[in-house]
Write a protein that binds this DNA or RNA. Sequence first.
DNA 1: AATTCGGGGGC
DNA 2: GCCCCAGAATT
Length: 350
Amino acid sequence: MKLEEITEPLLSWYEENKRDLPWRRDPSPYHVWVSEIMLQQTRVEAVKGYYERFLSALPGIEDLAACPENKLLKLWEGLGYYNRVKNMQKAAKEIVLKYNKEIPADYEKILALPGIGSYTAGAVSSIAFGLKKPAVDGNVLRVISRITENGDDILKQSVKKRVEQELEAVMPEDRPGAFNQSLMELGATVCIPNGMAKCSDCPVSHLCKARANGTVLEYPKKASKKKRRIEEKTVLLIQNGQEYAICRRPDQGLLAGLYEFPNVEGWLTEEEVIRAVEEWKLIPLHIRTAGEAKHIFSHVEWHMKGYVVKVASTEEKEAGNLLFINKKESKGKYAIPSAFSAYRKYIEED
DNA sequence: AATTCGGGGGC
DNA sequence: GCCCCAGAATT
């Protein structure tokens, strides 16, 4: 089987079956770029709402380049992988300065921008500019591994590089964007993972080696993942009247630059919590438990126990690194990640 | 080549 | 519980 045989069936199928997605309506380079960054390791359904809101707030590249970081993170709040939006702003500033406010129609220049790897560079190049560059994501790797019945570990970058070369060699000159999207669309809606592939709906099932040999369930091959480590934390809801304390996380590492309720490593007793609050030079008046919560990241789990600590009224908005905010500021101003969703209700109620 | 980055939905 | 998602950057 020659791989290029998939081109015509895929393109025809795509035109008939493609989903109506927000970023397919007006595929300007900026729109395609924003959508592709949001879609990195993130499902289409999760992105839709964020995409519309983001472009309403920042309709152009210059708006993105000039946006204050807190507002930017608030627009991304809950979407995850927050370096994506920071890198996107870096790239926007670079585009404004070096490329006269327009994304260059050049694969290598796009690839060199922060936050853009081979997949995103290929997607923007092909979809927004009609350049013949492949866009190989997890969908494409799964589809190709099944069609070719290839047992290599698709998590290896060497495999991704090889698939990119193979696809670039057989891509149609005229419709590279549609070709790339057809492979992803097939992977997302028909050739889906975990053994539920709908081969009867597949336009290239007659070319699929795994289908012919009944081995679809065995592909793609992936190396097993290592276990997550577990971190125990005590989360403090420090209440001063209608306001609660939050603090900014460090600029590097997990959830960098986002805000959180003050918390400490380990599970503290009430007495230890009282002492910890006094370390902030606050005067604890009353303490009660605020329940337990678990949050699972890709590589770590937080097992949290919470306490509500009412403190004596203080004039200061800030105490050390603490920042006292009200319900309105919590909802509209500061980005607090989903890891703390179990505890946000304390400030968002009352 | 491995690890670190979020969060949610499906089974 | 485990899987995976329109991946990229860092170590």
